[in-house]
Simulated scan of single mutants.
Amino acid sequence: MQEATSPSSGEAQPEGRPAAAGSSAETPVKPVIPAAAAKRANASVIGMIIALALSIAAFLPVVLMNPQPKGESFRPDVDVASVARNAADVAGFTPVAPDTGNAFRANYARWEAGTASGVPTWEVGYLTPKTSFIGLVQTTKANPTWLLQQTKNAPVTGTRNAGGKDWELRDTGKGEKSMILNYRGSTVVLSGAAQLDEFAALAAAVVASLDANPAVTVSPSAPAAP
């Protein structure tokens, strides 16, 4: 009995001591911040919050007094007829200015000299009633290569009557389509992703404008378009 118990009693003492030392080592030490330092830290945070609140209070009235405009106000009010009259002297003909009432909204109208392509053009962009887009291009110097570029190499898929005239219809098959009309000495190309009924409505207004303008006459001395 002495041999069995004496080792265990001898080991119990060393094991007990490390356990007590380990428990004291694992006890977390809580840092103590002086009251003055804690007061200064709290004052800094409160000061930042007050400064932020004052900045928001100063900026908020400016935002409220200048509300963001609605989406429709971003649409520029382009007077296509006025720009067309100004471009007539440079173009050598009266560019079309379709009267669509308030149905179509023009967001640009310009004369392009065609320095790169060799084909000077009258260009107007229209936002349709269904919030799509149709681009109008008119020229007196159209050629097959230029037409392919304007219609994105789309094949001819038929014709569509608009304004009493048969327009050539080209469709890419990916939503983009074009309608082409050669009439009264010029070529008009309408291109975009709008629906065909919107194309037809704009095309009819184009025909009316072409009929109202003098027909384009080509000088006999002028070289033929390639």
Rank of each mutant, 00 (worst) to 15 (best):
A201R: 10
N42Y: 03
G10L: 11
A20M: 07
T159F: 04
F133N: 00
L148R: 12
A58W: 06
Q2G: 10
N213T: 13
A193K: 10
I134D: 05
G10P: 05
T115L: 07
P214D: 11
L54V: 12
A43H: 04
A205V: 01
A91M: 10
R110M: 03
A224Q: 11
N107H: 04
Q149C: 00
T172G: 13
K141Y: 09
P69D: 04
K177I: 08
A84N: 01
K141D: 11
K165R: 13
T151S: 15
D99K: 13
K39M: 15
G173Q: 03
G135P: 01
R17A: 08
R40M: 12
S6V: 10
A88R: 14
M1I: 07
A91Q: 07
Q195D: 15
M1Q: 05
D211G: 15
S73I: 02
D166M: 04
V206K: 12
E26D: 13
S73C: 02
D77K: 13
V90Y: 02
A203V: 08
L196S: 12
W111K: 13
T172L: 10
P120V: 06
A21H: 09
V156W: 00
A81R: 09
P31K: 02
V96D: 02
Y183Q: 12
T159D: 09
V45E: 05
S24F: 08
V206Q: 09
V63M: 11
A58Y: 03
V216A: 12
D197T: 06
P69K: 00
A36R: 03
V124Y: 06
G135E: 12
A51W: 03
A4G: 07
A142I: 15
I46M: 14
F104C: 08
E176R: 07
E176H: 03
A116V: 15
W146H: 12
D89F: 04
A116L: 14
L64M: 13
Q150F: 01
A41N: 02
L52M: 11
P31A: 05
S44E: 09
T139F: 05
